[in-house]
Design a protein around this nucleic acid. Structure first.
Length: 427
DNA sequence: TCTCCGATTAGAC
DNA sequence: CTAACGGTCTAATCGGAGA
């Protein structure tokens, strides 16, 4: 192969915040440093973030909180409800800092960012400086993994996190071929991005246990038996980029708003009250990306963990005569769907709505055979503006909030230190 | 037989 | 209040329906 066609090796960094939600909480609670801390999911159900001390005690990711109660009694694990307003705000600050290091970056999740550092002189120093700056300006600890592909950058980040000797930075590209082989042979295949529990099990039947096994597996067999996703993953492990950096966030194709209830719900008006809140949330997101939806779906769930109770999980979708993003219009449909699904003999634990068939808002194309779409806008724009200014839920549609009893449990939420003056404790 | 569509599955975080 | 197990999102795949 001629060197002219050889693309230069990417120096792609994956920056990942350490124990992100716990780290956010600790910023304002120095007393929680060096003690086991966990952050719980919505409804205070499962553990979604753990401090190193909590990990050491054996608290598993996603573990139901009530299962950990023994550990609490024994070791005093401190639990907090999740506070997404706080995490989103700190995330934005971290991402802002990282974006200064390269014109090409991708915010991959609330606590992760890919940064293309290709061509950066003194890569090693810059990586440490980046980490140091995020710590200094936000107080959030991060680790940096560098590789020639996204998959290897993620793997490198894992190594940086796991080995204290790396000081929070690990560059796969700096390894010799022999060192790469040795490292990949030591890493279990489930550490690879895109290889989850099910796949790990199936790969084991093919004697693929380590990352190196996957990297060197017979490609046509892999493709035929496991599909195109794994083939791409294998290529990425072989240092051939297959997953592009997504510099611009694509608009959502589907918007879901759903929640488990704090208590079981049996009454129709309570379900409708919850659903009207979900409609308000989903529609606000829809309008924020200047889109409209053509299909509306609603669903109900009984508690699937209560084997002693009868189960019922209906779901109904309706294609709209014309797409809309008007909360009131959408709620009228959801209301009707709920009426049709509701059966009084069940106890409901969760409900939600899905907006799909999403398209950008365009000027209405006249069609003699269709009803004209009503003028969209002013009321919803005003509602969004007021809620933005005074906080979500400041202005609601009249069906919202008449009934309670469905709201999630959130018994241990921290104050919104960074986004709401009224919640900052007075010293 | 081909294509399209909805439902299901798997994964990430 | 004394039981209790998240929420969103994407892409691939599969089977059936309809052309």
């Amino acid at each position: 192969m001629s060197s002219a066609t050889q693309a230069p090796v990417q120096q792609l960094a994956l920056v990942d915040c350490n124990n992100f939600y716990v780290s956010c909480e600790r910023l304002f609670r120095p007393d929680l440093r060096n003690v086991p801390v966990v952050v719980l999911s919505n409804n205070d159900g499962c553990v979604v973030s753990r401090s190193n001390e909590a990990k050491a005690l054996g608290v598993r990711m996603g573990q139901p909180w009530f299962e950990c109660k023994a550990l609490v009694a024994e070791h005093g694990v401190f639990a907090l409800s999740s506070n997404y307003a706080l995490y989103a705000d700190l995330s934005n600050r971290v991402m802002q800092i990282l974006s200064e290091y390269s014109p090409r970056s991708e915010v991959y999740s609330i606590d992760e960012c890919f940064v293309d550092l290709t061509g950066t002189p003194n890569l090693r120093e810059v990586s440490y400086a980046m980490r140091q700056r995020v710590m200094q300006w936000t107080g959030i600890p991060v680790c940096v993994g560098i590789g020639p592909t996204k998959t290897l950058a993620k793997l490198a980040n894992h190594v940086a996190k796991k080995h204290p000797r790396s000081q929070g930075v690990f560059n796969f590209n700096a390894l010799t071929e022999a060192q790469k082989d040795k490292l990949l042979t030591q890493l279990p295949v489930e550490e690879v991005w895109g290889v989850g529990r099910k796949l790990t099990k199936r790969l084991a039947e093919y004697n693929i246990h380590t990352v190196q096994d996957l990297k060197t597996a017979h490609t046509p067999t892999l493709r035929a038996d496991f599909g195109v996703v794994i083939e791409k993953t294998q290529r990425e492990l072989q240092e051939i980029p297959c997953v592009d950096l997504q510099e611009i966030t694509p608009e959502k194709q589907q918007i879901i708003s759903s929640r488990s209830f704090g208590n079981m719900v049996t009454e129709l008006p309570v379900l409708k009250d919850a659903l009207s809140t979900f409609v308000a949330n989903a529609c606000a997101k829809l309008r924020a990306q200047n889109s409209q939806a053509a299909v509306i779906q609603a669903f109900l769930h009984t508690n699937r963990f209560r084997k002693d109770l009868p189960q019922y999980s209906p779901s109904l979708a309706v294609p709209l005569p014309y797409p809309t993003n008007d909360s009131l219009v959408i709620f009228r449909w959801v209301d009707a769907l709920c009426e049709r699904m509701y059966k009084p003999e069940y106890q409901y634990k969760k409900a939600g709505i899905v907006l799909s068939d999403i398209s950008p808002v365009t000027h209405y194309q006249g069609d003699l055979l269709e009803e004209p779409a009503p003028a969209q806008g002013t009321l919803m724009q005003t509602l969004d503006a007021l809620n933005k200014r005074f906080g979500r839920g400041a202005v609601k549609v009249s069906t919202q909030g008449a009934y309670s009893g469905w709201q999630m449990r959130q018994e241990r939420r921290s104050p919104n230190y960074t986004t709401d003056w009224t919640e900052v404790p007075v010293v």
